[in-house]
Simulated scan of single mutants.
Amino acid sequence: MAVHRRHMRRRRRQMLDEVKISRRVIRDRLNPLEEYSDDEIFDRYRFRPATIQYILDSIAPSIVHNTAKNCALPPTLQLLTCLRFLATGAYHRLVGDSIGVSETTTGRCCRSVTDSIITNLLKNSITFPTGNCAREIKQQFLAVAGFPNVLGCVDGTFIRIIAPSENEPDYVNRKGFHSLNVQAVCDAKYKITSICAKWPGSVHDSRIWRESALCQQFENGVHSGFLLGDSGYPCKRYLMTPFLNPSTAPQQRFNTSLCKTRVMVEQTFGILKRRFSCLQGVLRTDPNQATKYVIACAILHNIGIDRGDVVDSTQDLDQVQLRGGNGNIIVAGDGVNIRNHIVDTYFT
């Protein structure tokens, strides 16, 4: 009897296994690069096929993972899954449905590809200009608005996130929602040359700048030139800010020129968020992963500009107003004297 029962149990297990195998569904995975036109691919993934292939060649070795499962997701579809998420900010389930993968796989692809983009492309994609590159950027800024010796424009922007489980009040910004406060510097071609995305939304722009590595480089004399910022930043010998109450025509002309030049960083944020809609909505993840998504988007933004795969800026410069700071900033030091010298030399 015992032998018979063991035989029956073994037979039932075999029958269940046969049923599971017969019910297994193998879904066809769509390869968008073969299904859509270049413009359709750009609309869905924010890059054209040539640029997608360039990114894939740069990161593919680091996103291939060993797995014992059959039909592992190839690097191309992993990259497209991540780009689809960054382009739309949709739920992982919806992104996965568009390519034929599960919600869990979509999340894993987004994290893996983002890490690979940062590891392999950050160093060469986001660099502050030096040498001949710095001289070219100064000439470009001078041609745009007549402002001399400018290396870049600096500002911050809020990126919404869900309420984190730790230090939740720190992430509530002055507008009342949870966010990161992302500081970036751009050049005259809307490329991001420096980015700091780790700070909670409640932290003031001036503190983020003061504790950044780029600020220390300017303080130590590594860079020769100016950054342009709004009145939320302190006026320094390397950081020009507008007159809060211009009293003369040259000071007003200085403010107008600074505004027309500094608006490029606001346009850069606009271009970045239009290309990657995940930055316009709410990043439904923890702050550490949200920071990685922001940096990855900045890297991809620069790659798009370098390869001519761009989203045009349509913001009207005449509609941009000078923005005041959101805290008490003491404007002091030799920055004030340098600002007055620029007014007397170039705007009188």
Rank of each mutant, 00 (worst) to 15 (best):
V3C: 12
M15P: 02
V19Y: 13
V19T: 11
D28R: 15
D38R: 02
R48H: 09
P49I: 00
Q53H: 13
I59F: 08
P61A: 05
C71F: 15
L73H: 01
T81N: 02
L83E: 00
R84D: 03
R84W: 09
G100V: 03
T106G: 03
T106N: 07
C110W: 06
I117Q: 05
K123E: 15
F128K: 08
A134C: 04
Q140L: 07
V144H: 12
A145C: 07
L151D: 06
G152V: 06
V154P: 08
D155Q: 07
R160I: 05
E166I: 14
P169K: 04
H178A: 01
N181Q: 06
C186F: 04
C186K: 01
K189F: 06
I192S: 03
T193S: 10
C196F: 07
A197F: 04
P200S: 04
R207C: 08
Q217A: 10
G225C: 05
G229A: 11
Y233L: 10
R237V: 11
T241N: 06
L244G: 03
L244E: 13
N245A: 10
S247V: 10
S247W: 02
F254G: 08
F254A: 11
T256V: 12
K260Q: 14
T261A: 14
V263Y: 03
R275K: 15
S277C: 14
V282G: 02
L283E: 05
D286R: 15
N288A: 14
T291R: 09
C297T: 13
I299V: 15
N302L: 09
G304S: 04
L317K: 09
Q321F: 11
G325I: 05
I330S: 12
R339L: 02
I342L: 15
I342Y: 13
